[in-house]
């Protein structure tokens, strides 16, 4: 096992795929000299050349559109959009072209590309650099949506996304870039998309979460378990497909569920999970399914205002206690 950051683990996964498959390449702004916003492309251009780690103009629509064209023409591009907020300049390409090409051309086409667009609050980058729009893409047929929460997952899921024949929206959480975790460098296999990770087992309450909220919920669950509320934590890892089996079997065991995500609660993906569990497991539930998401406000700048948006460990604990 090696300790590395979330960003370093992503770089390792990418490097392994660049090494393994000569049709894998990446395009985006500031990948060469800067090495990506968090060093997730550091030195890869020097090693693999400017044709495979491509510095692009600030042209998000074409970063996405070119990746689609390159995927249709037989390569496996990674379109780096830097911020999911900036990727909104390329939603048309992603939603109208990448997600639909295979279908509307009757199966003639595949679009094996990764649209890499980090989400979440990193601290002080305010309304246009902090959003979490993962539910938007889970809503779009044709797309796979991945939200890694740990360094090890950010390597294994990125590798899986690169090898996937479907277009994958890959949403790293910016607040996690510097987080450290154990990575088994000898295990070079990709993870399976659509398989959740049981972060912590428990028998009284299931908390489903992903991305930046996983570590917050995990800490809350430890406190809750010490208090006698045995709390199971599920990191979904991928929102589409989401691991119904893992969630359902946990809820059948615990009879209580809440979903926690940083994204705005209204219309968030927590609503989908809550609704499915309520519809299919109503008789197993000992109380209503609960949701915790962000307020329906833009992400504010000032420290106390930004903190007021974020979900804290204490808030998770308080909400969990309200079940009992």
């Amino acid at each position: 096992m090696t300790e590395m950051t979330y960003a370093q683990a992503a770089r390792l996964g990418l490097k392994e795929e660049l090494e393994r498959d000569p049709t894998v390449w990446a395009l985006g702004e500031d990948l060469g000299f800067e090495g990506g916003m968090a060093g997730q492309y550091k030195d890869l251009q020097a090693e693999y050349g400017a044709d495979r780690i491509v510095d692009t103009p600030i042209s998000e629509a074409t970063i996405m559109g070119a990746a689609i064209g390159a995927a249709l023409a037989g390569t496996r591009p990674i379109a780096e959009l830097r911020f999911s907020d900036f990727a909104m300049c390329a939603v048309d390409e992603l939603v109208n072209q990448a997600a639909k090409a295979r279908y509307m051309f009757g199966g003639q086409a595949r679009v094996p590309m990764v649209a890499r667009m980090p989400i979440g609050i990193r601290g002080g980058i305010a309304a246009q650099h902090s959003q979490s729009p993962e539910a938007w893409y889970a809503h779009v047929p044709g797309l796979v949506v991945v939200t890694p929460a740990t360094p090890s997952d950010n390597r294994g899921l990125l590798k899986a996304a690169i090898r996937c024949d479907d277009p994958v929206v890959y949403m790293e959480h910016k607040g996690l870039w510097g987080s450290v975790g154990e990575v088994n460098e000898n295990d070079v296999e990709p993870l399976t998309l659509g398989k959740a990770r049981i972060v912590k087992e428990g028998s009284d309450l299931t908390i489903v979460t992903w991305a930046g909220m996983v570590s917050v919920v995990e800490k809350a669950a430890i406190t809750l378990s010490e208090e006698g509320v045995s709390t199971e934590v599920i990191d979904l890892r991928t929102l589409w497909p989401w691991d119904r089996e893992a969630v359902f079997s946990s809820v059948i065991k615990t009879g209580r569920m809440m979903v926690v995500h940083e994204a705005v609660q209204v219309g968030g993906f927590g609503g989908e999970i809550s609704s499915e569990v309520t519809e299919h497991l109503f008789d197993n539930l000992k109380g209503p399914v609960k949701r915790m998401g962000g307020a329906r406000i833009p992400i504010p700048f000032s420290i106390p205002l930004e903190e007021s948006y974020m979900i804290s460990q204490e808030q998770v604990i308080a909400k969990a206690r309200s079940f009992f």
Binding site: W25, I68, A70, A109
Partner: peptide, 25 residues
């Protein structure tokens, strides 16, 4: 023939990407 397209000018960005793939390959 990589497709007609319902969105005006989206073929432009797809084309340059396809050309990049041609160079890479």
């Amino acid at each position: 023939m990589l497709g007609a397209n319902g969105v005006i000018a989206d073929g432009c960005t797809i084309s340059v990407g396809a050309a990049q793939a041609i160079k890479l390959l």
